[in-house]
């Protein structure tokens, strides 16, 4: 549905993005992840035809975003970062204007507006001036204007920024619902959000794609070994020795002391082998007290930080 190839954009001599390539299939939600200033907004602006790339191509639904800009613009719904909507209009009048310029046939306009007002939860504010709306409602109006003509592709730049936690959950829920019929690109610098909503993630840093994969693959890929955390009551020298002797354990490290003889230990074992049963068995048999045993999960957050800092190094 969306194909981006070798996209490069320079602002003067400053590269904003360099050689960015990725694809999004129909019906997929792609998370576009990166620290602030990584080039997310630039990429989205190129995709929406707001500005051209210095080099490289991007197509949406088979149309080149630069050459067939009008065709592309008919098929996308775009929500820019700061939700720029006209303050001096009422919500329903604004949505009506959007349906007009987006070329929704006159007969369908009322119905589409009704529908999007319902979907975005705007019933109670539909006759209010936009400038009097709270941030959360503004965001929803922004989303409504992107959705109102039922576009095939949605491009959302930080759709949950500045919202309170309840609103964030609502917007995420809404986006997830939409995903069944639409192709969505969503940018964010909030990791849990991306891992929650998106099937696939492109991580971008300093204008370059540093990783592109499904959320599960990304987290498991950076796990070269399995890490397990233990809390054991017993003389640490003895415990270390016992742990090291368990089959499949590569490295054992004593972490912080809890009280007296109780210490935390971190065990690294090979990935293809679950050593938890053996570890527990060994400790218990030696007569020491096993207080806690849990695997350390690698979150998308760790992957992100790892990739981004690797790039800098």
């Amino acid at each position: 549905m969306i194909a981006v190839e070798n996209l490069t954009k320079y602002y003067g001599t400053l590269p904003a993005i360099q050689g960015v390539s990725f694809r999004v299939e129909k019906g997929e939600i792609l998370g576009f992840l990166g620290p602030n200033g990584a080039g997310k907004t630039t990429t989205m602006r190129i995709l929406t035809g707001f500005m051209p790339a210095t080099s490289g191509t991007a197509t949406v639904a088979g149309y080149d975003v630069f050459k067939d800009s009008l065709e592309v613009r008919k098929r996308i719904g775009y929500l820019p970062e700061n939700v720029p909507i006209y303050n001096d209009m009422e919500v329903s009048a604004y949505l009506n204007f959007v349906t007009e310029v987006k070329g929704v046939p006159k007969k369908l306009r009322k119905e589409k507006i009704q529908q999007v007002i319902k979907n975005c939860g705007l019933e109670s504010v539909s006759n209010r001036m936009i400038k009097n709306l709270s941030k959360g409602y503004r965001q929803r109006v922004g989303l409504a204007q992107a959705l109102v003509n039922d576009p095939e592709v949605l491009i959302l730049d930080e759709p949950t920024m500045g919202l309170d936690p309840k609103q964030i959950t609502e917007i995420r829920h809404l986006i997830k619902e939409l995903a069944t019929e639409k192709t969505i690109i969503l940018s964010s610098h909030i990791l849990p959000e991306v891992s929650m909503i998106c099937q696939r993630v492109v991580i971008i840093n300093q204008g370059k794609v540093v990783a592109e994969d499904t959320t599960e693959n990304l987290t498991s890929r950076s796990q070269t070994s399995r890490r397990i955390l233990l809390q054991v009551d017993g003389p640490s020298e003895v415990v270390l020795k016992i742990l090291r002797e368990v089959n499949g354990v590569n490295r054992v490290q004593r972490k912080d002391q809890v009280t007296g003889n109780i210490f935390n230990y971190e065990v690294e074992a090979s990935k293809d082998r679950d050593v938890r049963r053996d570890l527990a068995h060994a400790i218990v048999q030696s007569g020491n007290g096993l207080l806690e045993l849990r695997p350390v999960e690698v979150s998308l957050e760790d992957v992100f930080v790892k990739l981004v800092t690797e790039e800098e190094g």
Partner: peptide, 14 residues
């Protein structure tokens, strides 16, 4: 200044 220009330019209008 308000940024509405960006949104306007991404609507299918010449």
């Amino acid at each position: 200044r308000l940024g509405t220009f960006e949104l306007l330019m991404t609507y299918p209008i010449r």
